[in-house]
Design a protein around this nucleic acid. Structure first.
Lengths: 158, 158
DNA sequence: AGCAGGTCGTTCGTATACATATGTGTCGTG
DNA sequence: CACGACACATATGTATACGAACGACCTGCT
């Protein structure tokens, strides 16, 4: 990313629905930036394990479920079938995941962690908790709970 | 994206910092999902103008500033120099943007909207307001203000 | 049994997103 | 004025992210 910026404050808002658009007040831009913040923090703290946030999410979820189909894993981690395919392929190439065909459904593939995968995931989970803490660090404890709750509501995660 | 999911609720949390990790409670995952929600909504409502959220952000910001250097635009829209380069290149190819070398700094390039770019941006801004409304629709008005404020705090946008 | 419609994994194409490297240009300091 | 540190735009490589299309397969209905 760029060197952080600190640009001049944003001036006047106009009435919405009109031809003015203050990027910095729009939810989409804010979400994008906040997400970027998390990715950066994750990279800084977990990057030396060579795991991206998505790769980690996949590992963590497999770890939680023991064995899942690739497609279900995708739904649980909010990844497109096309996306999860690439993620799994890269984790496979590193030997972190074992695959086997689903005996009950010949379309499906079942995934589980390999022994090295389990070890790496344990360590990554430890660090991931620290990442979450770091991301929320600018907020008060109350604000953190608020934000989490609001995002869950927004994303329909009850 | 996948057909939406509605998976079973998440069970028990363990004490954090330990070997449990409930993806659905972690800020990174929530931010990623919320961001996905916005991108999807944007695509649905602005997609037929063939604009992505980032392309639109660039156009909107150029429109606001009149003329900016590519690099400054990148900082204002939170895009890497490498990223903004690609975005601008595609908008240029469509004739939505005009370029000229900065007379005061031969490294820099100045960007402004072309006439078609201005027209398209006006229409896109109209729709973008509607997108923001749609994204926040699951929240109460109070919650919307709360969430926006918290994200601004988190992303250091004062 | 057989078929229609849907699902699972995969592939292709395009667009962010960012690290890294490079060539060119600017600027402050000596 | 010269030089080193830095800034700007670009190029390359990798990793999401997703639409669209595909072949293989499953399932419910007839």
């Amino acid at each position: 990313m760029q060197p952080a910026a600190k640009l001049d404050a944003v001036p006047s808002a106009t009435k919405p629905g009109e031809c003015e658009y203050v990027l910095e007040t729009q939810i989409g831009h804010l979400l994008r930036r906040a997400h970027q913040r998390h990715v950066a923090q994750f990279e800084k703290e977990v990057g030396d394990l060579d795991l991206t946030p998505t790769q980690f999410a996949a590992l963590a979820k497999i770890s939680e479920r023991g064995e899942v189909s690739q497609n279900l894993l995708g739904r649980m981690t909010a990844m497109d079938p096309a996306t999860i395919q690439g993620v799994i392929q890269r984790l496979m190439a590193r030997g972190l995941i074992d695959r086997r065909p689903d005996p009950n459904d010949r379309r499906a593939t079942l995934l589980r962690l390999s022994a090295p995968g389990r070890t790496l995931t344990r360590e990554a989970i430890r660090r991931a908790h620290h990442v979450s803490k770091g991301v929320l660090e600018p907020l008060t404890p109350d604000d953190r709970a608020q934000l989490t709750a609001l995002l869950r509501k927004l994303t329909d995660l009850t």
